[in-house]
Design a protein around this nucleic acid. Sequence first.
DNA 1: TCGACATTTCGATAACTGTCGAATTGATTA
DNA 2: TAATCAATTCGACAGTTATCGAAATGTCGA
Lengths: 115, 115
Amino acid sequence: MVDSRNTARTTEAAKPARLNRAQRCLVLKALADPRRFELLERIAKAGCPLACAQALAALSISAATLSHHVKELESAGLIRVRRDGKFAYLTLRPGVLPAMASLLTSLESANCARR
Amino acid sequence: MVDSRNTARTTEAAKPARLNRAQRCLVLKALADPRRFELLERIAKAGCPLACAQALAALSISAATLSHHVKELESAGLIRVRRDGKFAYLTLRPGVLPAMASLLTSLESANCARR
DNA sequence: TCGACATTTCGATAACTGTCGAATTGATTA
DNA sequence: TAATCAATTCGACAGTTATCGAAATGTCGA
């Protein structure tokens, strides 16, 4: 799980949050599965916390499999799961995706060979 | 393999190159393995095409394994391999990493739920 | 309390993948 | 031509993972 201290906010700003090697690896692995990526897309594009049951209806997988993928995304630090009685709601955890993006960008800009 | 038409240059500019689903998946899978990521890092940071033998010396893996990882990176479109007689030289293929980065960024910015 | 329901856990299975040593291929040099 | 060397391919193996059905857990409403 991505250390929450890295993303703890002082007041309101979203933080860049550098990813270390282990975190980077977890995040990439989590993103690399197509179904999981699609799930994350749906969570991101939903205007509000996405109910688990909704995700289940959208993707055509079993509840057990969904639960597994949710756990993977959660422990990679990509989403937050709020459990409320019978239900669970999924939200994107801000900052992680941008951190990954800037990591990749900086990798390429480190490149000097122009051919 | 990422379609080279997407990255074919007219003259000199580096192109953003949108990734489709299959390409996105290949790239993420390629990045998700730690050794492969490290290899890519070395290629990116080298100021010039990296000789295969150099990569082999740097990472502690067998030649067979290196060859496998090179193929993965190549077919994901992340690197280009120039073969010259006995030797092979690896260079980062520009545009792919930024395309991935912007894909991730746009995913988060699609998010409207601020909590 | 009982039954229905959402989610999770468990156990099993099939598919995938990273790894290696050995064999192969192809190029360079003696 | 023969020996050497870089890289690739092959075959095998171990570890991981996505997937499911069944069972368990916990919550809510009747």
